[in-house]
Amino acid sequence: MANATLTSAPVSAPQSSDIVLETRGLTQIFGGLVAVDSVDLQIRRGSITSVIGPNGAGKTTYFNMIAGIYRPTRGEILFNGEPIAKGSKSLGPHQVTKAGIARTFQNIRLFSNVSAIDNVLMGMHCRMHSMPWHAIVRSKSQREEEFRSMERAYELLDYVGLSGTARVAAKNLSYGDQRRLEIARALASDPKLLLLDEPAAGMNPRETATLTEFISTMRTDLDVTILLIEHDMKVVMGISDHIAVLDHGVKIADGSPEEIRENPQVIEAYLGAGSAEVIARLSGESTAVAQEVSTDVSNG
């Protein structure tokens, strides 16, 4: 099992490789539909990598394979060099989390009737060790663990800016706060890789700007690698070190934001065949327009 060894080991472990996550030929077929088609991708330690693509490009399916919800039809996923999905074997979602990959959801999935602080504590489950019999006798170690976890949960709430709402049921928080709480809950499992599924969805421009900044601070503060799916090009272009573009399940481009911006294939995927040429012809500064247009399209 790959998960156990990875949990608490410091990052500077002997694996000198600076690739946190790698997918090789990752494929998912639903019935006859090829949702994700042999995607190869490497994610550098400490980077912010975005997966973008038009609706139905297979981004969320790709995410769900990494998160352990779907078993890949073909291909493999390596996390810190250890396979978490390979051939017919793949870890379940809880094992993936234990191995050090946490996630948020596109349509918020908090434990809605539970208080914010308890949501965070629930996210800490796999980093806690006390067993039911410890709880029955309330052993010293169990009490200490509860105390430490609670402190950590408060810290995390502070960190995401929810200090005042620890005892409020998640469903009574505002939309933006719910998104923050989801991040806090994901951070509770002490991830090395954080998967954010459209974190800016449904946010207004100001909230989005704050969030973008927050994501980049988080990377440096917490020494965590971030993989995100996002529609909002402002977010993606603003913070990503690396961008992969999916279209109809196929990775059509992969590179720095500048490279992606100028890639005609990407523009075509977003705007339809031939559009790159049209745009190039219409405007001298083709890239700037293309970027503007694709931003508008994906926002709309």
């Binding site: 979602p93 996630r103 959801f105 809605s112 996210g123 796999c126 806690m128 006390s130 709880a135």
Partner: peptide
């Protein structure tokens, strides 16, 4: 005692949303 512990919270989480709970490592 059980309900007011790690196990009890795991039960609540599973009951509320099994997929989310699994994704949080439960």
């Amino acid at each position: 005692r059980l309900y007011d512990s790690r196990m009890g919270r795991a039960w609540q989480a599973i009951r509320e949303d099994e997929i989310a709970a699994a994704s949080m490592g439960i």
